[in-house]
Design a protein around this nucleic acid. Structure first.
Lengths: 344, 344
DNA sequence: ATGAAAGCGCTAACAC
DNA sequence: GTGTTAGCGCTTTCAT
C-alpha cells in the first residue's frame, strides 16, 4: 500500500488539502472549527498519514537539516562527544544532522560542500577532530560555524577549547598543593600543535603569578604518546634531587600514562613522591589509571552544542574571534603535596 | 543573487529544461547533438548552476540518503570507526548519511524513525555501540540493517563481531607460545555481555583442542575496567606457583591494562614472566602500553562498511543469521614463551 | 534532435 | 471557516 498523502487525508475527512495542512501544522488554527480539526486528525490517524519532508522542504525552502563536515570521525575517540553535543541540540530543535567525513582531502571536501549545498541544508558546521588553525575550504558558506578549529583568516564563528586557561588551571592546582618545581611534559614542536603553545603559556603564566622562576630544564618535550611521556619523565627524574621536579603537568593523558610508568620504574609513588596532572580527560583511560588521574577536560560535548546553537541561530557569535570554551579541571587522585625534603 | 535553476540554464542556452536535464544527467545523451550539449554545459557553468537535490528527490522518489540510528555515539571511543566505515561506502556510492542518536530512549527512537521515514531515506541502519541482542524498535523498516547487534527475534540482516573466533585466536596464540596454564580475566556476569559468553566459549574450545583441562580457578571475573583487571590478576598471581597462570587472556584492553599493573606490582615482567592478550585493540591505548599489547581487534570499521553495503543493496545478507565479522589478532609484544620452571 | 507539459507532495496567498 | 490554486525545481513521457 502506497504511503498516504495529504490529499488522501483530505478526501477521507471531506475537506481540502489546505485545511488539512493547516490543522496538522497548527497554523491559522483559530479560524478552523474544532469539529473540522477533530475530523482531520482522525482522518490522518485513520489513513496512517506521515508527512513527506522532502515535499515540504521543496515548498518551504528549508530542510531542517544541518550539514556537519568533519575531517576525520574515525581517528580520535573524542569525536563522538562533539557529535553528541551537536546532535543533541539539533534534535531539541527538530533538526537532523547529515554527517560527512572528508578525511582531510580537499577533493572530498569540495564534493561534500557540493552535496550538502545541493541538499539545501539550513546550516553548516565544519569540525576538526583536534584543535587546529585551518584554511577554510573554498565554498564554505559565510555563516558556517567552525568547531574545534580557528579560521586562519579570521572572520568566522568558531569555537575552540580555552587551552591557555586549561594550562593555568592545571598548574594552579599543582602550585596550590605546594609544588615549586613543576615540569611541563610538552609535545615536540614538530607536531605544531596549537594546544601545545597555549598550554605552555598557561604554565608560564601561573609560574610567574606564583613567583616561580621557570627552569628551562623542566620544559621537556617528546612525542605526545605514552612512550614519549615515559622517556621525558625518566629524563626529568634523573635530574639531581635539588632540581628534580616534584610535579609534572603533561600535555595529554597518554603522556601522563607514560609518566606513571616512569615513576613506578623509579620506585616513586603517585601522588606521594610525584604529582601528575594530565590533559584531555580521555575516556576509558584517565579515570582508570592507578591512581586515577587528575586532568583537564576538553569540552567536546559543550563545543558541539555551542556550534550547533550558533548554526541554528539560537545564539550569536562574534566572528572576529573564536569563542573560548572553558576546560574544567577534573580532580582525581594524582595530586598531593610535594614530598618533604631536607632544605624545605 | 538567487541560486540558478534549471530553467535559468535553459534560458541561457536557448533550449528547454528537458534538454538541460538530460545532458546534465547524461541521460538519452545520444539523441542530443554534441553542439547543444556543449552549449548547455557552458551555460550551466556560466550561471553557476548547482542541482537542487530536494526537488530531484521529490521527483525521483529517492533521496540518496541513508539514516543511521545509533543508541549512543558519545559513550564509546569505538563509535567513530563504525561511522567511518558506513560513511565511506555511502560516499563511494554517492549517498549521504543522516545520523540520529537516540541515547537508548524509546521515545527518541520512535521520533527518529519518524523523522527519517519522513525524510524518505533510501535505507536505514540501526547501530549499537557495543555488541548486544536487541529488541528491534517498532516501526523499523523490514530492510533496515542492524550493526553491532543481533535482533532478539531474528529475521533481520545484522552484523556482529565473531567473538567466539576472537577468543579462540587469543588463546591459540598463547597455546602456540607454549602456555598451558592460561587464565581468562572475564567480565562479571551481572554485566550480561554477549561478548563475555562467546569469548569464554572460544577460550574453552581451544583449551580442549590443546588437551588442556580447564582450571575453574583460572576463570576470574571482575568489573571489565582497569581496576577490575588489576584485582583479578592480583588474585591469580597469588595462587601457589604450580597453579599460577603463565598467561592471561583479558576480556578487554582495559582489564589487560590492570593486569599489567598487577604484574608490575608483583615484580613480574611482561612477557618474560607473564604473557597477556587483550581484546578490543582500543585506540590510543593498546599500542601504547609497555610492552605494546597483543590483542584482538574489534572490526568496527569493517562492520560499518558491511552494514552500509547491504543497506545499499551492494551485497546480500542472510536475514536468518547475523553475519560474523572476523576479529583479527594484532600481534605486539606482550606474548612470549612461559617462564622456565622446575618440573617443566 | 528537441520541446511541452504533467506531475512528485506540500504550503500559503487569495478567494469566497 | 474553508476551498482554489499556483507554484517550490526537477524528471520524464509523449509529441513533433
Amino acid at each position: 500500500m502506497a504511503r498516504a498523502r495529504l490529499s488522501d487525508v483530505a478526501a477521507h475527512a471531506g475537506v481540502s488539502t489546505a485545511t488539512v495542512s493547516m490543522v496538522l501544522n497548527g497554523v491559522n488554527t483559530t479560524r478552523i472549527s474544532p469539529q473540522t480539526q477533530q475530523r482531520v486528525r482522525e482522518a490522518a490517524e485513520a489513513v496512517g498519514y506521515k508527512p513527506n519532508s522532502v515535499a515540504r522542504s521543496l515548498r518551504t525552502q528549508q530542510t531542517r537539516m544541518v550539514g556537519l563536515i568533519s575531517d576525520t570521525i574515525a581517528s580520535t575517540p573524542f569525536a563522538g562527544r562533539m557529535l553528541a553535543g551537536a546532535n543533541d541540540v539539533a534534535r531539541e530543535q527538530g533538526h537532523l544532522v547529515i554527517l560527512v567525513d572528508t578525511e582531510r582531502d580537499a577533493g572530498a571536501e569540495r564534493q561534500a560542500l557540493h552535496a550538502l549545498s545541493g541538499q539545501q541544508v539550513d546550516a553548516m558546521i565544519y569540525a576538526c577532530m583536534w584543535h587546529r588553525v585551518v584554511e577554510v575550504p573554498e565554498g564554505l558558506p559565510e555563516d558556517a560555524v567552525l568547531l574545534d578549529c580557528a579560521p586562519a583568516a579570521g572572520g568566522r564563528a568558531a569555537v575552540v577549547p580555552d587551552e591557555r586557561a586549561g594550562g593555568m588551571a592545571a598548574v594552579r592546582e599543582l602550585v596550590a598543593a605546594g609544588h615549586r618545581r613543576i615540569a611541563f611534559l610538552d609535545a615536540e614542536e614538530r607536531f605544531d600543535l596549537v594546544a601545545s603553545r597555549l598550554r605552555y603559556e598557561g604554565y608560564l603564566r601561573i609560574l610567574a603569578d606564583a613567583g616561580i622562576e621557570p627552569d628551562p630544564a623542566l620544559h621537556a618535550r617528546a612525542e605526545p604518546v605514552a612512550s614519549g611521556g615515559r622517556e621525558a619523565a625518566r629524563r626529568l627524574l634523573d635530574l639531581p634531587s635539588e632540581r628534580r621536579p616534584t610535579a609534572m603537568f603533561c600535555f595529554n593523558d597518554r603522556m601522563a600514562m607514560g609518566a606513571y610508568a616512569a615513576a613506578h620504574h623509579c620506585g616513586l609513588s603517585i601522588p606521594r613522591d610525584l604529582s601528575i596532572v594530565g590533559y584531555d580527560d580521555q575516556q576509558l583511560i584517565a579515570a582508570e589509571l592507578d591512581p586515577p588521574l587528575t586532568t583537564i577536560a576538553l569540552p567536546h560535548y559543550e563545543m558541539g552544542r555551542w556550534a550547533m546553537e550558533v548554526a541554528l541561530g539560537l545564539r550569536r557569535a562574534d566572528p572576529a574571534v573564536p569563542h573560548l570554551m572553558p576546560c574544567p579541571i577534573i580532580r582525581r587522585a594524582s595530586v598531593g603535596p610535594p614530598p618533604v625534603q631536607f632544605g624545605d
